[in-house]
Design a protein around this nucleic acid. Structure first.
Lengths: 125, 125
DNA sequence: TAACTGTATATAATATAAATATACAGTTGG
DNA sequence: CCAACTGTATATTTATATTATATACAGTTA
């Protein structure tokens, strides 16, 4: 497990831990059901309070990336692709909702928006 | 000029003032180049510090809704439609950018997104 | 039972946001 | 000119939210 903390960049420590672990899970570097370092062990390594590592793990659990067995440890959750997908779809819909409002405000119609999407997403197939 | 402050709803006072004036400008209730109440006069009416009204006016000026002549007063800005439009376009592009990232994450392609846009904006022409 | 897991609650330190007072400087009309 | 009005700039207070922490607790395991 490879976590680097940068105290200077202003990003909260718990968040640095959260996103680095998250990325390792998404990239597959951490496998499903693999045990994560204990919150205390990791905290000791990083020389921070274990409350901070706990907070990072809490976020990860809330987002569904890990699961916890009290008194045993924390593990990488099996990828719930469908869940992740639905969350993303919801986010996308919210963005479209916002775009919709903005479009009305500056008199753009559906086609204008679609053209913008085509243009902005040019690099994607 | 009609401004109502609700101390209970948690929204900052300066923001309540900001959005009420903004709405009156957008709706046309306040005409171009019309003089706004002085920050001190309004503050007195509302029984708050004029620093708070000043802050609201500052926001309005930053957004381009009003302009200020120091020692004279604050006035409703001529509607810069083009400016507003460009700001909105930028916001829309940012949303599309976000959508683009999400789309990659859940394996949606450009066409999927366009279909979603079509669907979500159904009610607009 | 010692040494490890995670949990829960309370607390301290810091940063940010919100509202303010006070002193300042330009404009205007009598 | 000057009194009474405009907006400006700086420093300060207050409240709230965020970040990080210590300490005491409870379950698991070899």
């Amino acid at each position: 497990m490879n976590i680097l903390i940068d105290n200077k960049n202003g990003e909260p420590i718990y968040n640095q831990i959260y996103s680095q672990i998250k990325n390792q899970i998404i990239s597959g570097e951490l496998k499903e059901n693999e045990m994560l370092p204990s919150i205390r062990g990791l905290a000791k390594d990083l020389r921070i309070s274990f409350i901070t590592t706990k907070r990072a793990y809490e976020e990860l659990e809330k987002e569904g990336f890990i699961y916890t067995l009290p008194a045993k440890g924390c593990y990488v959750a099996p990828k719930n692709v469908e869940l992740l997908r639905e969350e993303n779809l919801k986010k996308i819909e919210n963005h479209i909702e916002e775009i919709s409002k903005l479009a009305v405000a500056c008199n753009l119609n559906k086609n204008d928006i679609i053209e913008m999407v085509m243009f902005c997403m040019e690099d994607q197939k």
